[in-house]
Every structure is written in structure tokens, then in C-alpha cells.
Design a protein around this nucleic acid. Structure first.
Lengths: 336, 336
DNA sequence: TCAATTAAGTTTATCGATAACCCCAATCTA
DNA sequence: TAGATTGGGGTTATCGATAAACTTAATTGA
């Protein structure tokens, strides 16, 4: 590889002079400057960012850790982060933890040794706490995305899950539903707890008693509780609507319902959090739509501000609203 | 940050001794070894991979450039690449070119300055040639994924698009269709040309004349030619089936058909390349399903072999078959 | 028993780039 | 016209880790 020294030799100057030309610092005559630039082009010189990072003590790289690279919510978020990072002169190192703590730990180790300047962290669950501790211990700035981790105060960009959930459930109630099930992600994830809280809010506001038999805890990657769903449907007073904790849960749920011969929305309404992206033929779900792209973009902004110290010491907490989008997966309950 | 020198001082040994402990090289007594290891843990030492890369002249990082991070085909491919890379001890730097040459060039520049050990490259189009030249000039090994670039011999992992397309179209023909339209990606992309070729093969094999008015060139990200579709439908002898070049084209196409009041598959059959991933409620499309995960995994394997010189000089060309999966988007043509 | 090994470390140079400081001649200034 | 300034550049040390060569003391072998 061509180095700064090769250029220097060719141009009959010192390496320092070349460095100054590259960085536009110091005093260099216009003549030498253009001569050196020409030689750099001819020799296809590209600065070695490793060497530069070593002395400057910054890599201009940020890391984005997401729990599910196949979920459109997170890929859209990733695009937002990527665009923002590029615009601010940073590269983005993606990581996909697959909702697994083990994989997440491997990524954290990698992040440390790569000496990225900061991390955008969408935690696998509350148990990610130690990983955040590790980052803090090494003084690597980070911003939590989408999911909060109790006991870890820091900059965050989250959605208003509680409010979004309330709106979804009140929408169902306004359609006439009284028996509403909740198929949720793991309660070890903050958004799942918030969505549960919003669900409870809506029921309380409308004087509907919470019935634990209608609550089902699965996980955000796949809907996994077919048997429980079945027994729920066999209840003397079965639900007429389901609120699914996220998009993939809703998809899994509907697949199961189809298998069981339950028609949506005629026999069962289904609503959920998060859109399904471009890969869906017929926007079908009534959803609380979150601005995924903004999550990423604002997260990067916050992170870079923090890295540059261009912000106040207090932790910034950005809460993005979600929008209720009514489509055809929700309808009034079947007549008795 | 804690360095190897801090550890050395604490342990009363030279930095080199610590380095040897880290890398398990040289002769170090078991006593000193464990003492140093303990100190490293206590001080939370993490090796600086920049410094290491600088001297070793390798980064243990690979780069994966994909054209559309929102497409399930590519995210699945990315997961395959990620898993394989991790398994082989490499980190993966993702890049998303968004099918744009400009963005692609930015990534190539970044790749060069980051000194990654190799690149998995899914080219935006044939016009990506110069970018490959740049990589070659700097002697960075690369493997082309999914899309070939004419005039650039190298290791590749591609799908058998031609054969897959033929199977899809012959499936339609076997259902009784004779007027079959092709809604394709840009012909500047090799897969689109191969799929066109497969389409032609199928027609020829079945003595059906190719009709240019049934050919529509769009792009793989979104279906964009509503007007042309409309006029195609108003032909005296309109198509009864459409072969879409990829999953997103099929989705866009069906949305348009729904708008126009054309029912699928009753009035129009639709088949396409590539699955739609987990985000789809009801697997609906008849597709040529490609092993996306394998694309990524085998690409990494090929790349690492090439980097390590553990392969013969000839270019390896892996062609993965696709599988015809018949579902409900295809049916016999409507009766006259 | 004495040279030859070996075990266990240490010293020095290096990767590529940059910060901080130094140097010299030309120009300016009072 | 002597001293100060400045334009244009060079020297040296440094970032953190490692390879290669070098020390020493202990052990081995014939």
C-alpha cells in the first residue's frame, strides 16, 4: 500500500508536509500543495485510517447494535442511523444481536477492541445492563435506542409505547370490543412492559377489568405460544380482539389464527405496534406506527453531540410519538 | 484506556511479555502467565485492534456491501454473512448502497481507508465496474454476490436466475397461460438479464412468440411503471400472468393491480423471484426461492479462503439453485 | 565437566500518521 | 540597519502492539 512516505519521497518533501496537505493545516505554498496533490492522485494514495486513529485517539466509527436485522422496524432504523452517520462524517459498524445476550456480549467485546467513538444500543433485554456497565467503564458514549434498561440513566430515543398501546386498545374498545387479549413480547424488555401498561390504562379508563387469562407473553421475534392461544380461544368468554406487541408477533398470531380457522377481522380483530415495511402486499394491519427512520437519525445526532461534548451534562430523553393507523385488521366484534 | 504498558508496569515485566501472554506465543512461565492474566482482568484491559492492525497489516474486518437493506433477501444474506464471518474470526462492516452508484463509491472509499481484509460486494449495477477496478488496484480481495459484473472475472456466488426464471414461466405455461408479461429490474443488473433470458427460454421451448409489448423494465426497489402496466392491460390481447423480477416488484405490482381492480390469481397470476421473509402473513406468492442465507455464508467462506490463499488461483464460481415453490398467487387463466 | 541447549524474558525497530516544536531565509518595521 | 516577524517547511516523539533478535541463567548431554 502507498503510504505518506512514498508520496513524500516522490515529491522530495518530508512526510509532515504531505500530512499537512492532506489535512489542510500548516503553511504550505500553493505550488507544493498542488504538486503533492497531483502525486497523491497518480499514486492512488488513500490514508490509512488505522494509523490516523491511533494517534488521534478517535476512529470516526460508530457502532449500531440491533436485536433483529430481519425486522423492518430495525432495518428502517438502521437506514436512518446510516444516513445520519454518513452525513456527520462517521462510519457505521452494524451488529445484530438476534435478541441473544451471548451474541450481544460478543459485539460489546468487539466494540471495545475496535475503539469506536460511540455506540447506538438497542438492548436485547433488561439483562443487557452489565453490557452497558462495560461500555461506561471504558468511557464509551452510548445512546439507548427503542428500549430503556432500568437502572441505567443515559441518553435515550424511545417511542411512546404506553400511549401508543393505549390508543390501539381504545380503538378496539371504541369498536365495541370488551374482551381484548394481549400477545406481548418478553416482559424483560421495556417496550413490552410499557405496552402492557398502556393496555391496562385503556381498560381502566373504560371500566373493563383486566383478565390475566387474556395475557400472553411470547417474544418479539416469533409468536411461539400456539397452545396457549388455543386454550384462550376455548374460554367460555373468549377474546374478540388481540393487541400484538409488535409486527412480527401479529404476523405469527394471524398465521396461527388462520390455521385454527379464525377469520380476521370478522371473527377476531388484530392490532399491533410497528409497520411491516415495503414487503407487504396489502397494508392490512391497524397499527401504532413508529417513526423508525427517525429513531436512528436522532439517535446518531444525540450520540455525536455527546461525543463532541456539544450538549449539556443531563441525559437527553427523546420520546417519539406513534401514530394510530386504522386499516382493515380491526372491525367491530361479531354479533352474539 | 488501559494499554499493554500499563499491564506490564503493574506486573513488573516488559510489554513484550504481556503481548506474548495475550497471543499465547513465546515462552512464558505458567506463573507469570497467570499473574499477568489476572492483572489484565483486574484492569479491564482490552487490546487495541487499531494498533494491532497497523503492525500486522490485517484488520480482521470484512465489508459487506448490499444494494437494499430493506429487502428480506439481502437481510437474510447479511445474517448468513455475519454468522460465517463471526465463526471465522472476522468482524463485518455493513454497507448499504441503496442501489446508488454514488453511495457505492463512498463506501468503496471508506473500505479502502479502513483497510478491511476483503469485501463481499453486491453491485448496484454493471456500472459498478470502476469500483471493482479500484478494489483490484489496491489488491483488496473481493467476492461478488448475487450479481455478476460483465468484464470482471472474480470469485462469485450467484443464483441460477436463468434456470429459476425458466421454471417459473414454465409453471405458468403449464397452468395454461400463453400471454405472460415480464416486469423486470433494470437490465443493467445481471440478474435481470438472466431472468429475461430464462423467460425467453421458457417461451421458446413452448413455441410461444416473445412479444415486446409484454416486457416492462422497472427497478428492483419499487415497481414504478403504473402507466405502462395499465396500457398493457388495455391491449387487445392482454396478459393473463406476470413474472416479476423480484419480491418487491411483485408486491408493488400487486398493489397496482388491486388499485386497478384486477384480482390475483383469479384474473391475473403473479410469480416472482425471492421470498418475502417472516414479515408476511400468508405465504402467497409462487416464487423461485433462493437460499439467501447461503449466499452470505458461502460468500464469506470464499472470501476468507481467498484472503488466506487457501484456494487455487482460478476464480471460483458458485451457482446456487433456486427452488420453485408453488403457492396461491398462480392459477389457471380465466376462461374466455 | 564444559560446551550446547533451552527456558524465560528483554531490547529495539516498525507499522502510518500526526502534534509539537524547531529552523532558516526572506521580508518587514522602527 | 538590527531586530522582529512570517512563510515554508523539516525533526522528533508518540499512539499501542508485535516481530525479530538478543540476554541470561538454568539445564542437559556425552
Amino acid at each position: 500500500m502507498v503510504t505518506i512516505y512514498d508520496i513524500a519521497k516522490q515529491a522530495n518533501v518530508s512526510a509532515m508536509t504531505v500530512s499537512k496537505v492532506i489535512n489542510n493545516t500548516g503553511k504550505i505554498s500553493e505550488k507544493t500543495r498542488s504538486r503533492i496533490k497531483k502525486i497523491m492522485e497518480e499514486m492512488n494514495y488513500v490514508p490509512n485510517s488505522m494509523a490516523r486513529s491511533l494517534v488521534l485517539q478517535e476512529t470516526k466509527m460508530l457502532s449500531l447494535l440491533i436485536p433483529d436485522i430481519t425486522n423492518p422496524f430495525f432495518t428502517t432504523l438502521a437506514r436512518g442511523a446510516e444516513d445520519a452517520a454518513m452525513r456527520l462524517g462517521y462510519k457505521l459498524l452494524f451488529g445484530n444481536s438476534d435478541e441473544s445476550l451471548t451474541k450481544e456480549k460478543e459485539y460489546v467485546d468487539m466494540i471495545l477492541s475496535t475503539r469506536v467513538d460511540g455506540v447506538l444500543f438497542s438492548a436485547a433485554s433488561d439483562l443487557s445492563g452489565p453490557h452497558l456497565q462495560t461500555l461506561r467503564l471504558h468511557r464509551i458514549p452510548f445512546v439507548l435506542l427503542d428500549r430503556a434498561v432500568p437502572g441505567h440513566e443515559c441518553d435515550t430515543v424511545t417511542g411512546d409505547s404506553r400511549e401508543g398501546a393505549r390508543k390501539l386498545v381504545e380503538h378496539l374498545i371504541s369498536l365495541g370490543h370488551r374482551r381484548i387479549a394481549l400477545v406481548n413480547g418478553s416482559l424483560a424488555v421495556s417496550t413490552a412492559r410499557d405496552r402492557l401498561a398502556g393496555y391496562n390504562d385503556a381498560l381502566k379508563l373504560n371500566d373493563i377489568a383486566v383478565d390475566d387469562t387474556l395475557l400472553l407473553e411470547s417474544n418479539y421475534k416469533h409468536f411461539e405460544d400456539g397452545p396457549l392461544l388455543r386454550s384462550m380461544l376455548e374460554l367460555p368468554d373468549p377474546p374478540t380482539a388481540v393487541f400484538a406487541g409488535n409486527n412480527f408477533l401479529a404476523v405469527g398470531l394471524i398465521r396461527k389464527l388462520l390455521e385454527l380457522g379464525v377469520r380476521v377481522p370478522e371473527q377476531m380483530s388484530v392490532v399491533c405496534f410497528d409497520d411491516l415495511g415495503a414487503s407487504v402486499i396489502d397494508p392490512f394491519f391497524t397499527v401504532a406506527s413508529q417513526p423508525a427512520y427517525q429513531f436512528g437519525a436522532m439517535g446518531i445526532q444525540l450520540l455525536v453531540d455527546r461525543i463532541k461534548g456539544a450538549t449539556t451534562p443531563e441525559w437527553k430523553k427523546i420520546v417519539l410519538p406513534s401514530e394510530l393507523v386504522v386499516r382493515s385488521s380491526s372491525a367491530p366484534p361479531p354479533a352474539e
